[in-house]
Computed example of a mutant assay.
Amino acid sequence: MENISGKYLFLKEGIFYFNRRVPKDLRPHYSSAKISYSLRTRSRAIALARANSASVKLDEYWYHLRSQDAELPGKHLLRHGLSRPASTNSKVVTPDVLTLSEGVLTYVRLKGHGRPKTFERAAHRSCGYVIDVCGDKPLSDYTKADANAFRDALVKRGLTGSSVTRIFGTVRAVFNFAAAEQGLDITSPFSNVYYDRNAGVSERLSIPVEDIRRVQGKCRELDDEMRWLVALIADTGMRIGEAAGLLREDIQKSENGNWSVQVAAHPWRSLKTDGSKRVVPLVGSAKWAAERIHAQQGNSRFAFPRYNVSDKTNANSASAGLNKWLKTLAPKGATMHGFRHAVRDRLRAVECPADIADQIGGWQTEGVGQGYGNGYPVEVLRNWMRKAMA
């Protein structure tokens, strides 16, 4: 068969992945130019079989899409070039009721201004899963049985409870917004769907201080770009993507010799939340990392050039490489994200007020009053960081 030679396979860290480009004439139906996902096996024979099966299914589906795209009288009057599937309910649906795919476009068009590309991508991907399982129907045609079938399909794929929660949250947001825009008085069937939210979710471990000290010592010993990134994160609790996408100019030294980092959104690296934008004082190993970064005479404007060779910061590469190295020094199960948990614990240990800790880590602070003013001065944050990281 066509894929028996492994045409659509590639190997990454011992795991086989399926990868196939979407034909140009079908690109309007997709939010990405290629389909790529893990086949969850290290066996080439099993990977070939799974990739071949996926390829055959895609060929059949693409034939179906091309058939729908055939010339049709009045086709220019359709909203998105595809006729809507017939309703499976007995009630009559008016032509003005949005389908889910149209709801996604409405949601992205009205709420996507100023949002990162991941916002649009998540909406298309999550609702695309629903369409794959239940079909692209008018919003009023979706039922609780559809929602349950969608849940079962996600669980069957082996997704963790947290991933299922995230996908359902996006689908609910799109559905409710589109229904409200249409003035539809309907309850989303994707609300109150039961599933095990803890399934497959592993506890994020906070790295003990003694292990942090060992890692920081090794960073100073090796003294290279990868270790500067570890050292920066270890005493700031920054997310790995936040740190890896920094510019050299984001890391600044004041007139009195104190270092700090400006965490802000960039075209190559967005921030997780609006509250993630902040200034973090650098002490301990983070200050050492800042000094080493600025001591280099390279031409790159990035603090970590190796993770910024394209138009997007490769945080996944940073995470994979550093987690692999960290395994040799930290307790079993520890990851780079464990430094973020540890910073929160270290701030608690010195009785740092919660709202100050939230500002340092870019965590969401509850309460209306927290949205007023500019927050604590950097020197107040620095005093608490010095106590916690000592």
Score class of each variant (00 low, 15 high):
A342K: 08
N299C: 05
N314G: 06
V280G: 03
M389A: 11
V56W: 01
P189D: 11
W228I: 06
V97K: 08
S254Q: 11
F168P: 04
A231G: 04
R84I: 08
A47D: 11
G158P: 00
N19R: 15
D211T: 08
A51P: 07
L105M: 11
P73G: 05
A286S: 14
L82E: 06
W62F: 14
A318K: 08
D358T: 04
G161R: 13
P208T: 03
G112D: 09
T328M: 07
N316C: 02
T335Q: 12
C127E: 01
N192P: 04
V368N: 14
I233G: 02
K24Q: 12
M336K: 10
R239N: 03
W62A: 10
V201D: 11
H341W: 04
Q364T: 15
R346Q: 13
T236W: 06
R346N: 07
G298A: 08
R50F: 05
V343M: 15
A318E: 10
S101G: 01
P23A: 10
S140G: 00
L232A: 03
I293W: 01
F10T: 09
Q364D: 15
G298R: 12
S206E: 00
R220M: 15
L110I: 09
E210F: 09
G241S: 13
G81A: 03
N89H: 02
N299Y: 03
N256H: 01
T170K: 01
V215H: 00
R213P: 02
L347S: 10
L246D: 03
A349Y: 01
N19W: 10
F302W: 12
V380T: 14
N308V: 07
I167S: 02
A334F: 09
S140F: 00
L77M: 11
L77G: 01
Y376N: 12
S31W: 09
G158L: 04
V193I: 14
H124Y: 14
A354N: 11
A45L: 03
D223P: 07
F190R: 05
S191A: 13
